[in-house]
């Protein structure tokens, strides 16, 4: 087929082939994920009967990640305060640090950090759990009982994560502000009162609702992607592992891409 090409040319085509098939796979999976989310929305009407499952999943997303979220929140705030605080000190403006922290946490960092933690701990577990169910015929068994796996498994997870991501984000934002206060006080010599005064000044309505919207959308993305990869896991020893790993990578990518577009729409 590539008879007229030298070795380098052929290798190039090989690389393009590979990239092409990966890109196709990505779009195929993205399309499947969107359809899955649409079907999950359709089953929202059955949410009351799945309350127990929804609360279980909310518990996983909220309570089980509490320690990690606390650490990540505090340290993000401390790093932010240290890095930007020292720069601000050069201009004698370190007392503004509270303003900066609340602004960057609500706009970007809070929802993003929450998404990273939930993807890594909850999303990966979701993909692995559903992938295992797929491999052990449990999904087929549900189909045979005319129980929709979307209603039974996907909808509760989507609802739980969409509800919990904003909550987790707020929690991380609050802790980051506290972490920032510690650094402001101990290293930048900004008193707690001054810190809080400027922090309040930094609170605006728009960044908060855009930030929470972002977190909500990230919840949809993470649950949708994780369930999609799980449901499409192939059998064999490697199937579930592959599904789990791919779901984490795809969730990160989608969170970054969609996160950018939400920012662009509201601030662009």
């Amino acid at each position: 087929m590539n008879g007229g090409l030298n070795g380098t040319g052929r290798r190039l085509i090989g690389i393009f082939d590979l990239i092409g098939s990966r890109v196709m796979e990505f779009f195929d999976q993205a399309g499947y994920t969107v359809l899955l989310l649409v079907r999950a929305f359709y089953y929202l009407k059955d949410a009351p009967s799945k309350a127990r499952e929804i609360f279980t999943q909310m518990y996983f997303a909220g309570v089980k990640t509490l320690v990690v979220c606390s650490l990540v929140g505090v340290f993000t705030g401390m790093i932010l305060a240290l890095q930007t605080g020292i720069e601000l000190q050069n201009f004698g403006m370190q007392y503004q640090i509270g303003h900066l922290i609340i602004a960057s946490m609500t706009r970007e960092m809070g929802p993003f950090m929450a998404a990273i933690i939930i993807t890594a701990s909850v999303g990966s577990a979701m993909a692995a759990e559903i992938g295992t169910m797929k491999v052990y015929d449990e999904i087929d068994a549900l189909e045979m009982m005319s129980i929709s796996p979307v209603k039974f498994l996907v909808m509760p997870r989507v609802v739980a994560l969409a509800a919990m991501l904003p909550v987790v984000s707020i929690y991380i934002i609050v802790l980051a502000c506290l972490g920032g206060a510690v650094v402001a006080n101990s290293i930048l010599n900004v008193s707690f009162n001054v810190y809080m005064k400027h922090l309040y000044k930094g609170i605006h309505f728009k960044p908060i609702y855009v930030g929470l919207l972002k977190a909500f959308v990230f919840g949809l993305i993470i649950s949708g992607v994780s369930c999609a990869y799980g449901l499409r896991a192939t059998s064999g020893e490697l199937g579930v592992g592959h599904a789990t790993r791919s779901s984490v990578v795809a969730s990160f990518l989608m969170v970054l891409i969609i996160g950018y577009f939400i920012t662009a729409i509201f601030y662009g």
Binding site: M133, Y136, D137, E138, D140, A141, E143, M144, M145, S146
Partner: peptide, 19 residues
């Protein structure tokens, strides 16, 4: 399909219980 499956039961090799 739903009608057919309503009249049919499958015992899967692995049992396929929800764990």
């Amino acid at each position: 399909m739903r009608k057919l499956r309503g009249r049919m039961g499958v015992l899967f090799q692995s049992g396929a219980l929800i764990n």
